[in-house]
Computed example of a mutant assay.
Amino acid sequence: MEAWIAITITAAFLQNLRSALQKHLQGSLGTTGASFVRFGFGFPLAIAYVLGLHSFAGYAFPALNGAFAFWAVLGGLAQIFATILLVYLFSLRNFAVGTAYSKTEPVQAAIFGLILLGERLTPGAVAAIIVGVIGVMMISVARMPLSWRNLMVALTGRTALIGIASGAVFGISAVAYRSASLSLDGPNAVMQAAVTLACVTTFQTVFMLIWMIIKDKSEIGRVARAWRSSALVGLAGVTGSACWFTAMTLQQVAYVRALGQIELVFTFMASIFLFRERINRMETAGCLLIVTGILLLLMWT
């Protein structure tokens, strides 16, 4: 098994864990606060990770540059807004379906990767991604009679548009992070990804703190009072992000994000066993199609 595959599956599991914890936090925090904790409680760990790689593994610090700063800021802002959209989405649909809408990201990431980086996919990979997206579409209409009209309504309704927008902005952030990491001059993919993660999460923390000070200072107090749960979100978030950043440094974003759809399998497990939400046959079939798409991707990559 190639390294990026194992790293991506780990990232997907940790991202699902972080999202589940954020959904739980939304009861005591607002959308902004629940979104902030992944960055605010994660950036000290990201910095410690970089220092650990330097001190114990002997990896040199890569030199930062203007291109890195541009892509890191773009990716950081995009991820903030995508996270806010996703957390808000959880209040509109159940946990599994809310996450599914955002999983149109692989197709959008492939488009952005082609436009911004000139990265092309094999025909087999395109087919695998399409199979996965069909699974997502099935999940989106699982709560209504299956028809073309209901499909169009489901894909153009408010919830769907917010989810698709979240996936699009996540796609932009993923391509930006790959560009930022690749713009650094070594020493290797792990250190480049780690430095990118540390810089991005520090920027995101400062940005969102300023935002909350301007918009709602009381939210900062609520975040502080929920520090135990928030710290778990930060730990899961930064560990997952380290895996995502490393995988996207090693492999094209579209491939990584397509394999990352395995998160929906973990999501359905959390939805059933943790949140006690009911999953119907159509949602189950959609999940199976997503898994099929992932297996096809691994065969044809």
Rank of each mutant, 00 (worst) to 15 (best):
E2T: 01
E2Y: 10
E2C: 02
E2K: 12
A3L: 14
Q15R: 13
L17W: 14
L21G: 00
L21W: 00
Q22C: 13
Q22D: 13
L25W: 04
L25Y: 02
Q26G: 11
Q26Y: 09
G27T: 06
S28G: 02
L29V: 07
T32C: 05
T32I: 11
F36S: 03
F36Q: 02
V37T: 12
R38T: 00
G40M: 10
F41P: 01
P44I: 11
P44W: 02
L45N: 09
I47Q: 02
V50F: 12
S55Y: 11
F56L: 13
Y59M: 10
G66I: 04
A67D: 02
F68G: 02
W71R: 09
A72C: 13
L74W: 05
G75H: 03
L77T: 06
A82R: 05
I84M: 14
I84S: 09
Y88H: 15
L89V: 06
F90N: 10
S91T: 15
L92Q: 12
R93T: 10
V97M: 11
Y101W: 04
S102I: 08
E105N: 13
Q108W: 15
A109Y: 07
F112D: 03
L114A: 14
L116I: 00
L116Y: 08
L117V: 02
L117Y: 05
T122F: 07
P123K: 01
A128V: 04
I129C: 13
V131R: 04
G132L: 12
G132S: 11
G135N: 11
G135W: 14
M137Q: 14
M137F: 15
M138P: 10
I139P: 08
A142R: 08
L146W: 14
M152A: 15
M152V: 15
M152N: 06
T156K: 10
I164D: 14
A165M: 10
S166Q: 08
S166R: 04
G167W: 11
V175N: 13
A176D: 07
Y177E: 12
R178E: 05
A180L: 11
L182Y: 14
D185H: 09
V190G: 00
M191N: 04
A193I: 12
A194E: 06
V195I: 15
T196P: 03
T201Y: 15
T202L: 14
F203W: 05
T205V: 00
M208Y: 10
W211R: 12
W211D: 09
K217N: 09
G221V: 06
R222P: 12
V223L: 07
V223Q: 05
S230N: 09
V233R: 03
L235S: 08
L235D: 11
G237R: 08
V238C: 08
C243Q: 00
W244Q: 01
Q252W: 00
V253L: 12
R257W: 10
G260I: 01
V265E: 05
F266L: 08
I272P: 00
R276L: 07
N280F: 03
M282V: 04
C287K: 00
L288V: 05
L289V: 03
I294F: 04
